[in-house]
């Protein structure tokens, strides 16, 4: 992020808002874990909340919103391979020969 003309006040306000949002989401995720829902729904709920939180951290604290193209593309590439790494072993274990 270029820092030549950062408006310090508006930035610190934004950071504090994000901070409060993160705290609320933390409470929410703990609360959600006590709901009586099936395991599948619980996992999805928790992962959605974690994704929102991580988007806030990466996007605002790490300045990814509005970051330069080269960094965005590097991350997109990483995410593709990350998905390969997560999913392919999973699929292969689901599709294994049963004895």
């Amino acid at each position: 992020m270029t820092t030549h003309n950062v408006d310090v006040k508006s930035h610190s306000k934004k950071y504090i808002k994000v901070y409060l949002a993160l705290m609320v989401l933390t409470v929410l995720t703990v609360y959600a874990s006590f709901l009586t829902v099936s395991v599948g729904v619980g996992i999805i709920l928790a992962l959605i909340i974690a994704s929102v939180k991580s988007t806030l951290v990466a996007g605002i604290f790490m300045h990814l919103f509005g970051e330069k193209k080269i960094i965005i593309w590097t991350l997109i590439l990483t995410i593709i391979f990350f998905i390969f790494l997560i999913l392919i072993p999973l699929f292969s274990s689901l599709d294994s020969i049963k004895y």
């Binding site: 390969f84 392919i88 699929f91 292969s92 599709d95 294994s96 020969i97």
Partner: peptide
């Protein structure tokens, strides 16, 4: 996206 061709003999199913 090709690594499991080292693992054809591990009991992977036909699809994968």
């Amino acid at each position: 996206a090709v690594w499991a061709h080292h693992m054809f003999m591990t009991g992977m199913g036909t699809t994968i």
